[in-house]
Design a protein around this nucleic acid. Structure first.
Lengths: 347, 347
DNA sequence: CTGAAAGCGCTAACAT
DNA sequence: ATGTTAGCGCTTTCAG
């Protein structure tokens, strides 16, 4: 295969070249360069210098083949261009690159791609040393299949006895939102949720709704079933959901959207519809998106990049044999009141 | 509750297992499974079936070592959580996964990480088959080093004779914005730019500013040097830049921000400062961010995911030997007038 | 059309 | 402390 004609390919040094130049065996080179014990300091120094001179670096594929590790961790995400996901990835990246790990992004954007991950249809598991799954909504059985590959695995946004996980208390998220809205005097509250692929697994949307419903029950309130409106966590989805919700009889006076992006969509619809916020309609979201403050959105904040970083550290600590136990990490959340929620106007 | 996985660790089948079960040599298995010619249809069918039964998939590290390809492409990005970057990555992912390629994200978030890529300090180049760089702001020399590795390389947001590139006509972007604002009657226009690491390379900020300045010149207008305010393409950066710009004497009546996210920051500052938009201050951005419509932001739209997809296709076509020529792709842009720009109020 | 065999570059016992 | 020697699992000549 012809290489780029514009540039000559630099001669790639192998471990053999280094060994020869340093007058030692390849084994010693390998040991020296990886910081293993049992190498004379002088030897190590010499090898290191020569390696530098020769511009040598171990071929990752060769090490992977021989040692079984690839120094890269996989991050499986349901979408790539959501604020939440990209901030998780940013957090993962921070933690990984300081440890010298690469990150390979595994898009789960189609059912087919999900299948590929679960059933390892394209040997993804053998190109990574660890796996982080973000809001993957895995069933117990799917997850069992995945962890059976033996990779240190941590989920973000879903918890399971089968692996470590990091997230927030999503029931509390729902409860906070409900309490806030009822306290303001709302009685008709719309809930824009996500689709829960495996309701039994209690993923993010399920948990948040559960926490919400608990407050409804505790406060002796009622929810018209039509106030539950599933959507897809996108701005446009929030817009459509608001439209659905608000153009039906018995429309809510407040909407709790399970993400800020959906909440932004609601705000957009409200403006298009000529509704005053929070006068005619109160809106609360979740995330504290970069633009939440700009939009004055009341929301429940979480430190998303930190979730990613924490998950990465869990995987890396496992790989470094520092800590191989299972963890279930919960980060804190906080209600941030801004200007999109207020009491309903009388009537 | 002890984990009790349904599935025991799947025994990893090797090409040898398949060969034995199919009663052929490993060479034939390899050929059959990769769709190479010179395999009897019946043999191929048998091998394929057995491979499926055995749940066999070639170990990527082994193939990489033997054949020199890893079926993954690298995407180097300056940040991970910007709207622009995550949408580029989303586009790349779309194109890559339909071709069966993995994507490894290379964060260029620190100078050290940039160095790693340029000088190949950790053999990243040998774990990928192609490289896409997003707004990397590479100097000619750095780029020369990178392409010298022989990987098909394409840049997004920067053009160079050394490799393929995809982007938009950034000078036209600047020109469109300037023309729009002057047409509305503004005479004092603030420009919130980015930092241009290598001015000589004419990267995105440089080009946009250049196009802008050309219009200034052509129209016989003048720019107070203090109206150029560098920033960092973030919402917060836009806020600070607006503050800088607007609290100085001879403040602008309109601001052109080089990205929508910075424009959002400007909008935020304007609201905090009690300025009416577009009455007291007009604002125009670039991108057509998901929230641009929500915010009513006038902007210059580009199809960001498509940039990523196009770049990926360039790399993939190169790898598939379909087209190895150098391309310089320009996508279309369009001014979208919304409600943040208007004539300056008299006075 | 198929098989045998030589590596790809590195790591990991097992010597020494 | 260092060297020797097997592979890791696959691809790829080169024969047949």
């Amino acid at each position: 295969m012809p290489a780029n004609p514009l540039a000559p390919r630099p001669p790639k040094a192998t471990i053999d070249d280094v060994a020869r130049a340093a007058n030692v065996s390849v084994a010693t080179v390998s040991r020296a360069l990886r910081g293993l014990p049992n190498v004379a300091p002088s030897t190590r120094a010499r090898v290191e210098e020569i390696a530098r001179d020769l511009n040598y670096r171990a071929d990752p594929a060769a090490s992977r083949l021989a040692a079984g590790v690839s120094r890269s961790i996989g991050v499986a995400v349901p979408v790539l261009n959501s604020w939440y996901v990209s901030n998780v990835i940013a957090g993962v990246e921070t933690a990984c690159n300081s440890a010298g790990y690469d990150i390979v992004v595994i898009g789960l954007t189609t059912p087919e791609l999900r299948r590929r991950l679960v059933y390892n249809t394209d040997s993804i598991h053998s190109r990574i040393d660890g796996l982080i799954m973000v809001d993957a909504g895995m069933s117990h059985d799917e997850l069992a299949l995945i962890v059976a590959h033996g990779l240190p695995t941590v989920m973000i946004g879903q918890h399971s006895p089968l692996c470590s996980s990091v997230g927030i208390n999503d029931r509390e998220v729902g409860a906070l939102a409900a309490a806030h809205l009822y306290e303001l005097g709302h009685e008709r509250i719309g809930l824009i949720t996500g689709l829960d692929p495996h309701p039994a697994e209690m993923t993010v949307p399920g948990q948040r709704q559960h926490g919400f419903d608990q407050v409804v029950f505790d406060l002796n309130k009622t929810m018209d079933p039509s106030w539950y409106q599933p959507s897809d966590f996108s701005v446009k989805g929030g817009y459509r959901a608001a439209q659905e919700l608000m153009t039906r009889p018995n429309a809510p006076t407040a909407i709790f959207a399970l993400s800020d992006e959906m909440a932004f969509g609601v705000l957009h619809w409200a403006r298009d519809a000529g509704l005053a916020v929070p006068g005619d309609l109160s809106v609360i979201g979740v995330d504290d998106h970069d633009l939440a403050e700009v939009m004055g959105l009341t929301t429940i904040a979480q430190d998303v990049p930190e979730h990613g970083a924490r998950a990465a550290r869990l995987v890396l600590d496992h790989l470094a044999l520092i800590d191989q136990t299972r963890h279930e990490v919960f980060h804190t959340i906080a209600l941030i009141e801004r200007s999109t929620t207020g009491p309903p106007t009388a009537g």
